[in-house]
Amino acid sequence: MSEQSLYTVLGIGLFWLGLYRALTVNALLIKIISFNVAGAGTFMILIASAYHDTLPPDAIPHAIVLTGIVVSVATSALAILLALRSQSSSTTKTSANDHHR
């Protein structure tokens, strides 16, 4: 088995593993991390698709993944803040006021 198919298979496994955990878990933080794991799986598949035996690797998947990583950081930051806000508003008022101090 070549490295390319190995990384593709691992990427597919990672994607479905992350998606399964994201669909079944209740804790919001674990859900966000699971979506990140699934995203890492898609990045692995894309990077593996850039490999070539003789020619230099294809630059387009690299550029797509580089862009995708930064966008996934943005979405995770937003998702984590939303999760923290929804949890802090569901707890008591005093703990919500603590965060604004």
């Binding site: 198919s5 593709t8 298979v9 597919i12 496994g13 994607f15 479905w16 593993l17 998606l19 399964y20 669909l23 079944t24 598949i45 698709s49 070539h52 020619l55 230099p56 690797p57 294809d58 630059a59 387009i60």
Partner: peptide, 29 residues
């Protein structure tokens, strides 16, 4: 959910593995 994810994982493996090197813009770059 686990069953569906496992089935989809196996299906995507079957779909992906036989695919050869795709025609891309690498040589153009």
């Amino acid at each position: 959910t686990a069953l569906i994810c496992l089935a989809m994982c196996i299906i995507s493996l079957i779909v992906v593995i036989p695919v050869g090197p795709s025609l891309s813009a690498a040589s153009l770059i």
